[in-house]
């Protein structure tokens, strides 16, 4: 999956979770400034993990501030291989 393809999916998930004006999120927009609070971010991360069959560790998740950060975190996890549904929660 290319970075652009990942980004498209991520943007769709963000807009699915939160009603935001179209184009309100550029790659470098701070998610918090776009109106995505900590709980919205948790729900978005959860859906990303399910969609991509990955697990983003807590420490890595805390570093995510922008759309670009999200896409990078997903790329990193995809590079280590996907998880099946049963073991997704394991460290």
């Amino acid at each position: 999956m290319t970075r652009d393809e990942i980004e498209k999916k991520v943007v769709a998930i963000i807009h699915g979770q939160k009603t935001l004006p179209p184009d309100s999120i550029s790659r470098s927009t701070l998610l918090a400034e776009a109106g995505i609070d900590s709980l919205d971010a948790l729900s978005i991360l959860f859906e990303l993990e399910e969609t991509f069959a990955i697990s983003i560790p807590d420490d890595r998740a805390k570093e995510i501030k922008t759309l670009d950060d999200m896409v990078s975190a997903i790329e990193e996890q995809l590079a280590t291989g996907t998880l099946d549904v049963k073991t997704q929660g394991r460290v």
Binding site: L42, F46, D58, A61, K62, G89, V91
Partner: peptide
């Protein structure tokens, strides 16, 4: 506990 893990606020 799973639900709390999802909130990412547990000291693991």
């Amino acid at each position: 506990i799973r639900a709390w893990e999802s909130m990412r606020v547990l000291a693991i």
